[in-house]
């Protein structure tokens, strides 16, 4: 189910009656955990990996990326994000938490930037902002102000009895800790004392994208496996026509996400076990933003003649 709603507060009101109920209960989640663990046991045993390289980390972001193209994942390791992109992401995250915590009055951009500097002092965008001249600041403001305002509008109305946990990290160990699936949610909302009241909120600094749905399902899986309860919903906040996108969580979603997790873990385990083997190249729309696009023999014909830049 995907349904456009105006604010996070409205989403929570609609979800309240479902707190505590699920078609996918604790036993099913325990079974799912066991079944993933069993598959990954076999994967790790077959890989013959150097024990010093454990744990093999399977972060949420890398699952989607490695299933798209392992060669691109490797090429991008260590590359730095442009300061303005880094700052936009941080502004969106902070604006979302600020709005969820302080419903009365939206924060000015300058307040949001102060908060970014407090929580993420090494964000390269902060230095960029501080060192900018007046003209540059105006340009940055044009890119950041609408983002901050739209995210705050979308995250308004969170009732005060919901607890907002910003930047919550979730980890699920498999194969006795040799494989570690991780995710960091921009916000985890819940009502203390109410089992299965969790709502995971992901904040995007750009418009909605089809990959966000796949990400949402992975968040649902990792949170279910961590807590033993499936979350009520995954909410993606983004700019554009659908600022608040709600994905309900059910058994089908979790099982599909588990298959993606296992598939990605297999690729990552293999990359760690065989570091000198060239990773697979898989063409697709992601070739447009791949550092290898100028030299990769498998580059998608759609982008071989040029790039989105």
């Amino acid at each position: 189910m995907s349904a456009p709603l105006a604010t996070l507060g409205e989403v929570l009101s609609q979800l309240e009656p479902s707190i505590g109920s699920s078609d996918y209960g604790e036993d099913e989640i325990a079974d799912l955990l066991q079944s993933i663990d069993k598959e990954l046991h076999a994967v790790v045993a077959a890989a013959g990996i150097d024990p010093s390289l454990f744990p093999v980390r399977v972060p949420k972001g890398r699952i989607t990326a490695v299933l798209a193209c392992p060669a691109k994942v490797l090429a991008e390791l260590g590359s730095e994000i442009e300061p303005i992109h880094s700052l936009r992401g941080a502004v969106a995250d902070v604006a979302a938490v600020g709005a969820a915590m302080s419903p009365r009055k939206p924060f000015e951009l300058i307040d949001v930037l102060e908060a970014v500097a407090a929580i993420d002092p090494e964000n390269p965008g902060i230095d960029m902002w501080r060192n900018a001249n007046r003209e540059e600041k105006n340009l940055y403001r044009e890119r950041l102000e609408p983002l901050s305002a739209s995210v705050q509008t979308a995250c308004a109305g969170v009732p005060q009895d919901w607890v907002v946990r910003p930047q919550f990290t979730s980890q699920v160990p498999f194969v006795d800790g040799k494989v570690l699936a991780t995710a960091r949610y921009d916000m985890l909302l819940s009502k203390p004392g109410m089992p299965r009241s969790a709502v995971v909120v992901e904040v995007k600094a750009g418009a909605a994208h089809s990959d966000h749905r796949a990400d949402a399902f992975l968040y649902a899986l990792i949170e279910s496996l961590r807590s033993g309860y499936s979350p009520l919903a995954i909410v993606t906040i983004s700019t554009g026509d659908i600022p608040v996108l709600v994905e309900a969580v059910n058994g089908g979603v979790l099982e599909a996400a588990s298959r993606r997790l296992v598939a990605a873990a297999k690729v990552l385990v293999s990359m760690v076990a065989h570091p000198n083997e060239a990773p697979a190249q898989q063409p697709g729309p992601h070739c447009m933003v791949c550092p290898l696009r100028g030299s990769c023999p498998s580059v998608s014909p759609l982008v071989a003649g040029g790039s989105r830049d």
Partner: peptide, 26 residues
């Protein structure tokens, strides 16, 4: 601190308490 920093601090502290209570309760 500015109100926005205080909002972040309140969220983090509330999250700390909620995580403690939720995890032990489970």
């Amino acid at each position: 601190q500015t109100p926005a920093v205080r909002a972040l601090l309140a969220a983090r502290a509330g999250g700390w308490v909620a995580s403690l209570l939720e995890t032990v309760r489970d």
